[in-house]
Amino acid sequence: NLFVALYDFVASGDNTLSITKGEKLRVLGYNHNGEWCEAQTKNGQGWVPSNYITPVN
């Protein structure tokens, strides 16, 4: 599942992941309501807002 970041997101805690607009990432899963997804980039792994990313076509 390859996705791309639509916006910059700055991590606010130990379990969140900073991403940069245009960065590619893999989604590993979603939380119970789908608002957050666990993602992996070359810089690490953590939670990002699911509305900040979109699938790569």
Rank of each mutant, 00 (worst) to 15 (best):
N1Y: 15
N1R: 08
N1M: 02
N1W: 02
L2V: 03
L2E: 06
L2W: 11
F3T: 03
F3H: 05
F3I: 01
F3N: 05
V4M: 07
V4T: 06
V4I: 14
V4R: 09
A5E: 00
A5H: 00
L6V: 11
L6I: 15
L6G: 10
L6H: 08
L6N: 08
Y7D: 09
Y7T: 11
Y7C: 11
D8C: 03
D8P: 09
D8V: 00
D8N: 10
D8M: 01
F9P: 00
F9I: 10
F9A: 11
F9H: 03
V10G: 09
A11Q: 08
A11S: 05
A11W: 03
A11G: 08
S12W: 04
G13K: 15
G13V: 09
G13L: 09
G13C: 09
G13N: 14
G13Y: 07
D14N: 12
D14C: 13
D14G: 08
D14E: 07
D14Y: 02
T16Q: 15
T16R: 06
T16I: 04
T16L: 03
T16S: 03
L17N: 05
L17P: 03
L17D: 01
S18L: 08
S18Y: 03
S18T: 12
I19G: 02
I19F: 08
I19H: 00
I19L: 12
T20G: 06
T20N: 10
K21V: 06
K21P: 01
G22T: 00
G22R: 03
G22I: 01
G22N: 04
G22F: 00
E23K: 02
E23V: 03
E23A: 03
E23M: 07
E23T: 03
K24W: 04
L25R: 01
L25V: 12
L25T: 04
R26L: 10
R26Q: 04
R26M: 14
V27C: 07
V27N: 04
V27S: 06
L28R: 12
L28E: 07
L28P: 01
L28S: 09
L28N: 10
G29P: 01
G29H: 07
Y30E: 15
N31K: 15
N31G: 14
N31D: 14
N31C: 15
N31A: 14
H32G: 14
H32T: 13
H32E: 14
H32L: 11
H32W: 10
H32I: 11
N33P: 03
N33D: 10
G34Y: 07
G34D: 12
E35T: 09
E35C: 06
E35D: 15
W36L: 10
W36M: 14
C37S: 08
C37F: 04
E38Y: 04
E38L: 06
E38Q: 05
E38A: 03
T41E: 00
T41R: 05
T41P: 01
T41A: 05
K42V: 11
K42N: 06
K42S: 09
N43T: 08
N43V: 12
N43H: 08
G44N: 08
G44P: 01
G44F: 06
G44K: 10
Q45C: 10
Q45M: 08
Q45A: 15
G46S: 01
G46M: 06
W47F: 15
W47E: 01
W47S: 04
W47Y: 13
W47P: 04
V48H: 00
V48D: 02
V48R: 00
P49N: 02
P49Y: 01
S50T: 10
S50I: 03
S50F: 09
N51A: 10
N51K: 12
N51M: 05
I53V: 14
I53G: 00
I53K: 02
T54E: 15
T54F: 02
T54D: 03
T54I: 09
P55T: 11
V56D: 06
V56S: 11
V56I: 07
V56Q: 03
V56K: 14
N57Y: 09
